[in-house]
């Protein structure tokens, strides 16, 4: 699949190999250039993405802007940028354990969930991509329904299930609960990437005397490394952005940052600066890692099926 993307992402590489003569090549290139000009209609095509990106960035900018203001400035004078930039709001978060513990909690359960999800999903995805077995289609469909299940349906039963096991307010409870939608997601994404690896590679390795675990770890996993990265990223993201279940299963010791934010809003409703700073800090992890998966993000959202 990765190979396919390389050629298709740059259609021209593919084209250059097909025409026979150099003449045809130049003719083709001119045509292509004309075509592109025609396809884009005018010189103002860039306006659309630019306007869209501005629309996307404005609310985020406003949050960042607020996070550098004092509460007096936020509530007092309406200004498009902070007049007296302050990092006091961020200092509150980094010095108050009830705030920064929220980040630590979130990161702990998100990492636990990502490791669990991808580890169990790897062999399953391999089975789905290489073998047919009794009930495989039904099983795959059942996994899909869990990816599509409304978290609201599970909030209450999860609470009771994890109470029964005495796991309420632990990181592992949230990590396991998030497996509900992350494991199917990881299986789907990995299966998509694995199906792009030709089966001959497996067969050759077996002929060469590789045992299955050795083949899987030494040969197969490096081949789908990008797929594993994307699956990790998506598990991380979906666990990071989910709040309903995480909030239901935690009270204090494992409370995620997102839940701490909402509590603060409802309790005081006043400390806008700190709220904004906390919001900005929750956006940062996504903003940092997205660069690494930018070419695969569509494929991830399409469950490995672009």
């Amino acid at each position: 699949m990765a190979r396919l993307e390389e050629t298709t992402a740059d259609g021209r590489t593919l084209m250059r190999q097909t025409p026979a003569s150099a003449e045809a090549q130049t003719a083709n290139a001119t045509l292509a250039r004309k075509m592109r000009r025609r396809g884009e209609e005018s010189r103002f095509w860039w306006l659309v993405p630019t306007i869209y990106i501005i629309f996307l960035m404005l609310p985020i900018y406003w949050l960042v802007n607020m996070s550098f203001k004092t509460n007096q400035e936020i509530l007092g004078a309406f200004s498009l940028w902070p007049r007296n930039p302050t990092i006091a709001n961020y200092m509150v978060i980094f010095t108050d354990p009830s705030w920064y513990k929220g980040y630590i909690n979130s990161i702990i359960y998100v990492v636990m969930n990502t490791v669990i999800s991808v580890t169990v999903a790897l062999p399953a995805a391999y089975a789905f991509s290489r073998y047919r077995f009794l009930g495989d289609k039904h099983l795959f469909f059942w996994l899909l329904t869990n990816r599509m299940a409304p978290p609201a349906v599970f909030a209450l039963p999860f609470f009771q299930l994890y109470s029964a096991f005495g796991l309420i307010d632990t990181h592992i409870a949230v990590a396991l609960a998030h497996c509900l939608f992350n494991v199917p997601l990881a299986v789907w994404i990995l299966e998509g990437f694995m199906s792009g690896v030709p089966k001959e590679i497996d067969e050759t390795a077996y002929i060469d005397g590789y045992s299955f675990p050795r083949f899987f770890l030494r040969i197969f996993m490096p081949l789908i490394a990008s797929g594993i990265g994307v699956a990790c990223f998506f598990c991380f993201m979906f666990s990071w952005v989910e709040l309903l279940i995480a909030r239901t299963l935690t009270t204090t010791a494992a409370k995620p940052i997102a839940a701490i934010m909402t509590r603060t809003v409802s309790a005081s409703g006043l400390d806008w600066g700190v709220l904004a700073a906390a919001g900005v800090l929750t956006i940062l992890p996504g903003a940092l890692v997205i660069w690494f998966v930018r070419n695969y993000i569509a494929k991830g959202f399409a469950l490995g099926r672009v």
């Binding site: 993405p49 869209y52 990106i53 996307l56 960035m57 404005l58 609310p59 985020i60 406003w62 949050l63 607020m66 993201m237 990071w240 952005v241 989910e242 709040l243 997102a258 839940a259 934010m261 909402t262 809003v265 806008w272 709220l275 904004a276 919001g279 929750t282 956006i283 996504g286 903003a287 997205i290 930018r294 993000i297 959202f301």
Partner: peptide
């Protein structure tokens, strides 16, 4: 830039628009 909103925790999305 376009993918950024997809990666924001959902309640922070709510908070952003509540403030905005």
């Amino acid at each position: 830039l376009m993918a950024l909103p997809l990666l924001i925790p959902w309640n922070v999305v709510g908070t952003i628009w509540q403030v905005f």
